[in-house]
Amino acid sequence: MTRYVSSCFFTLFVLFLWRVEDIAEACRCLPQHPQQAFCDAEIVIRAKVVGKKAVSNNIKYDIQQIKMFKGCDQVIHAIFTDTTSCGVTLEINKEYLFTGKLETGRMYVTMCGYNPSWENLSAAQKNSLTRLYKSGCDCKIIRCTSLPCPISTSAACLWTDLGTDNGQNLACIKREDGSCAWYTGMAQPKK
């Protein structure tokens, strides 16, 4: 029996070493509310992908910028993404919403960002991009995977429906009293 147990441990150890590289390269990110992605990003644009080319350790996607929601005054002509597991794969001739960072004059996006195709955004999300998300960046959206979830500040909204699209159609907005609440687009959040 001891020889069998030793053999099992040795096999498991070899399998573990074989997978260490894959595990180390895995991209780990938690689901992010669209508003939090907007607020955390340096640049948020709507753009159409028109070309693709490998550049060093990156993929360069040539784009036609349609609208700048947040960021710099310059027009972005290309988006860069990593060639590892954290990089995004985009389709040519398709429009996307990109949330990313600006590094050395280049816009970078990752799988951990929020980069859905434009056609998959709801009307509420598209509306929130132009006015609501920015006004709620002083609020914090707290993920809650199982109740109860404590909130230590009134300047936060609790995001409890991670597995559905419902919460993604809401915006967390600061109220007059300084607290934050979910806004549906119908009426301002009450005190």
Rank of each mutant, 00 (worst) to 15 (best):
I173C: 08
T81D: 09
K60H: 15
G51Q: 06
P116K: 00
G105Y: 03
A37I: 01
M111T: 07
A171F: 02
F80N: 09
F13N: 11
D40G: 05
Q35L: 10
T160R: 05
A41I: 14
Q32P: 00
G136D: 04
T184F: 05
A41T: 07
S135T: 06
I76C: 04
K48L: 07
K134E: 13
K126M: 05
L170G: 11
D82G: 03
F38N: 05
E42F: 04
I43H: 14
Y96P: 15
I23E: 15
A54H: 03
S6C: 15
A54G: 04
L170H: 08
Q32V: 10
R131E: 00
M1V: 14
D82R: 03
K48Y: 12
V50F: 05
C8A: 11
L97E: 11
K191S: 04
S154W: 01
A78W: 08
V44W: 00
T11Y: 06
N127S: 09
H33E: 02
K67C: 04
G178C: 03
D177G: 05
G167V: 03
Q35K: 04
S85M: 09
C157R: 05
R28I: 15
A187W: 09
F9G: 07
S179C: 12
D62G: 00
V5N: 12
I79L: 02
